[in-house]
Write a protein that binds this DNA or RNA. Structure first.
Lengths: 218, 218
DNA sequence: AAATTCAGTGAACGCTTGTACACTGAATAG
DNA sequence: CTATTCAGTGTACAAGCGTTCACTGAATTT
């Protein structure tokens, strides 16, 4: 297996007339998609400019019309993936959920979004620590922002109204870490979604059990 | 920078007479050390057999006298690193600590061991998700064992004496994940050990706060 | 003392890699 | 209608890769 389906990314040919910049952006997206495809099996650092170009259906040198280096493409991939993550959190935010039901709802939304965008989540969780240089930094940066956003969200809950920013951040961090662990489990076990989801609920439940008794100490 | 110090790993020359197998094992260790050195900056998958051999002070082809492939070396590296991790947990176990003081003690031990074996922890945390194939699987396997061991340890605590195996596993998993997150933070921030340590303590404290109220639900 | 083992050597191989360069030809601008 | 722009092409090159093979020479066995 390996050299059967190539350049499939662009092969959904649209015969309509398109402007030049539109076509360019389409190729750019093909490059991103190609990289996302390949990254799943071999890690971002283990993939070459040439094969990404080939998979996208262009010649290696044309790659440079879109990115100065693979690292630059990687950062673009981080941004794209983080957009997916934010979409998810927005989805969770708009659902008006009771306090206890909230955990169940959140985990369900997580499961749905992970399944709908496996490659994005795969990329993020895999390269979060494994990646090198710019990609890893970009993820760290974005994830830090993300935790801060979640902390603000948490502040709205009755039980947490009086918590300090620092404590909220701690809680948000713990939640995000737990969520990302769950994401990894979901991606690794193809079919045990239910069980993993229940474990995730229990983990979060344990964390939130401590909340009423929390007393911030210097 | 980069090509100044090469083959340093073997350069601590011991002029004593040594048996052949002893010398072989010494070279093997040089290969492991070399890989561990290089893996810090570029990730294991971005590491070539040739440069590892060069760093170890041998010719590329001699590599095969010790490992059949880089993957095999990687698995050996996992075993070596896990040995360090187990040493740490044994260290934590033998310290007879009060329930609340236990968190402080554990975090202190964690900090000490991480600093003393930065490269092992770096390797483990980085390749846990980022790695490819055999290395990642080996880490996953060993870490699963490790969690189970911790669960057994936890069972000895008064507050947890009546917990089911499943619940203990959940708690152990949460602790390990939190610990590994802390390890990553320690490795990334060169000098903020104290602050990171305190955050780690708070995280664990929040988790354990939930323990008394935990009620296992199907 | 002679024979054997085997960790380490060094040249050679066929490939893939990133990148430089001069190019083509359709979409755009004048 | 002509001139310009520029995404994508094709060739070329030096460097690095994993692996092969026949080899050396000191430690070990006989």
């Amino acid at each position: 297996m390996g050299d059967t389906a190539e350049a499939i990314t662009l092969s959904v040919v649209t015969t309509e007339p398109v402007s030049r910049q539109e076509r360019k952006q389409r190729t750019r997206q093909a490059l991103l998609d190609a990289a996302l495809d390949l990254v799943a099996e071999r890690g971002f650092s283990g993939l070459s400019l040439r094969e990404v170009a080939k998979q996208a259906g262009i010649v290696p040198t044309a790659f440079y019309r879109h990115f100065a280096s693979m690292d630059e493409l990687g950062v673009a991939l981080v941004e794209e993936s983080m957009r997916t993550l934010r979409t998810m959190i927005r989805s969770a935010r708009t659902k008006p959920a009771a306090y206890n039901d909230m955990i169940k709802t959140s985990v369900r939304i997580l499961r749905e979004h992970v399944r709908a965008h496996e490659d994005h989540f795969h990329f993020l969780t895999r390269e979060r620590y494994g990646g090198t240089g710019p990609v890893r930094q970009a993820i760290a940066f974005e994830l830090k922002l993300f935790v801060s956003e979640l902390a603000v969200d948490l502040a709205r809950f009755d039980n947490l109204r009086e918590w300090s920013t620092e404590d909220l951040h701690l809680l948000a961090d713990l939640i995000v870490t737990t969520m990302l662990t769950t994401v990894l489990e979901l991606l690794e076990a193809p079919s045990r979604d239910d069980e993993i989801g229940r474990t995730a609920e229990r983990r979060l439940r344990l964390i939130f059990l401590g909340v009423p008794n929390w007393r911030s100490v210097p």
